[in-house]
Design a protein around this nucleic acid. Structure first.
Lengths: 198, 198
DNA sequence: CAAGACCTTTCCGTTCACGGAAAGGTTATA
DNA sequence: TATAACCTTTCCGTGAACGGAAAGGTCTTG
């Protein structure tokens, strides 16, 4: 990381400067900022998850704040929620569809039409919520299980500390149900580098 | 699905029957039961996520309840939490390590040793919790955002229903901040089949 | 204006997580 | 015992998500 973050952002502003809120960044800068590679960003664009935002005269990609937010969102969905790029694409499309619906809504007064549009948005949202809630529930279950064990271990430690002062024990075997079934000795093909996930 | 679920589980019980709690299943049966393919199950075994449990005389894989639980767990982690097979492998290894630690704990009375073991278990658990909680937080954030929007839409609908009886409106444009940045018209390379995820 | 650091597209390579065919063995049933 | 329906291993193929080199263009600084 770091080398000097490049000489200076190019003062191109060819297309139209966004009131100079912040100069647009080039792909490498964005990549470093967010924690992606330029290659990934180009790939996401190729897959339709981003629009080119803007290009300099020399056709360099230029990213504004909204592009960056969008990329952060994509990375979050990928890393934290484990969505595939295609799934993220669908989520973003649904997003866009709802945005369109919002505009359509603003341009009609017909109650029936308005109702139709709102119902569509509702079920789109509900679909996404259903999917997310499933993941969420599973994850919460796992966290709860781990927390139970954590408490269990802490109790043991407390008990141990008490014994140190006290002496005399009740050497009880312990329990704790396994998260998955059975233990197995295999494992190794997968054991390699703890550390960088993915 | 379904064709007759095969003639009958083979009454092999070569190695040792588990008190006949339930007859072990063959790979196809397990696959159908859990919603995996035989190929995936063999792959997971190859990657060290399962031990062969048992084999019939003809070297058919036989799966008992604990194997099935383990496979369910693996599938849950894969589908719901979005973990890679390697990550799941690591989780299961940590699991196994803690199991060993529990046994080691039962076989020593040395308080220092016991403390060392328990501390190890604790930090292993904490590591996993940290990772999971990160995912969890992100997911909760998304769910919360979607729920806010859902409420928003519901309010609109209620308002609409009110107007139907009432007539006379305040035609307010609406807001709602975007989940990700900007809208873009592209999208298509990714648009294909809503439905079967993965 | 020359150098250096970045950028572009194109294309081929790689890893993961399997899918699927081939060649052959096993098990329950008719 | 013969057949059907499983199973085995081995190996090659595939789609997703990039990595990386090649060949060339662009921007900024000295």
């Amino acid at each position: 990381m770091s080398r000097s973050i490049a000489p200076e952002p190019p003062g191109d502003l060819a297309t139209r400067s966004p009131i100079a809120g912040a100069p647009p960044l080039r792909i490498h800068q964005v990549a470093e900022l967010i924690g992606l590679t330029p290659r990934s960003i180009r790939y996401y664009e190729e897959m339709g998850l981003l629009s080119p935002s803007a290009r300099s005269r020399g056709s360099y990609r230029l990213f504004d704040q909204l592009d960056i937010d969008r990329l952060r969102f994509i990375k979050g969905l990928r890393d934290d929620a484990g969505f595939s790029i295609a799934e993220i694409g669908r989520l973003l499309e649904d997003e866009a569809a709802r945005r369109l619906a919002r505009e359509a809504l603003a341009s009609t007064d017909d109650p029936a039409e308005r109702h139709r549009i709102l119902s569509g948005r509702l079920s789109s949202i509900d679909d996404q919520l259903a999917g997310l809630n499933e993941k969420l529930a599973r994850l919460q279950e796992m966290v709860a299980e781990l927390q139970r064990r954590r408490r269990h271990v802490l109790e043991h430690l407390a008990e141990l500390a008490g014994d140190a002062v006290n002496a005399g024990d009740t050497a009880n075997d312990d329990d704790a149900p396994a998260l998955a079934g059975k233990a197995h000795a295999a494992g190794s093909a997968v054991a390699a580098g703890r550390g960088s996930a993915r």
